[in-house]
Amino acid sequence: MTQRVFVCRCEDVTVAEIQHAIALGLGSVEEIKRYTGLGTGPCQGKECIVALVRLLLAERAVTPEAVQPFTARPPAEPVTLAELASVAGTPPPEDGP
């Protein structure tokens, strides 16, 4: 059944894949993110990180005290490149390669 249960719906990461990563010795949220791609899609982990942490705790891969979320990356919400282009005060590059 867990073959078909998705933890990260953006990147299609299943419970079974996470259990496999844990079996390989990867016990932290950062490691699982980089092994499975979990949390790198459009929602940036907002939907899946709690489910992942529950699973890590249930599998005894981490203790509640030791669990850490992965580094939140800016921007907080998706922003278009054109909007970003209008932000003032960018330093010009010193020299092109």
Partner: peptide, 18 residues
Amino acid sequence: GRTLAAVMPRLGRLKVLR
């Protein structure tokens, strides 16, 4: 954002995720 939107204007509409 400025440089990419100039080199390939259509990409200006693309959203940065991280």
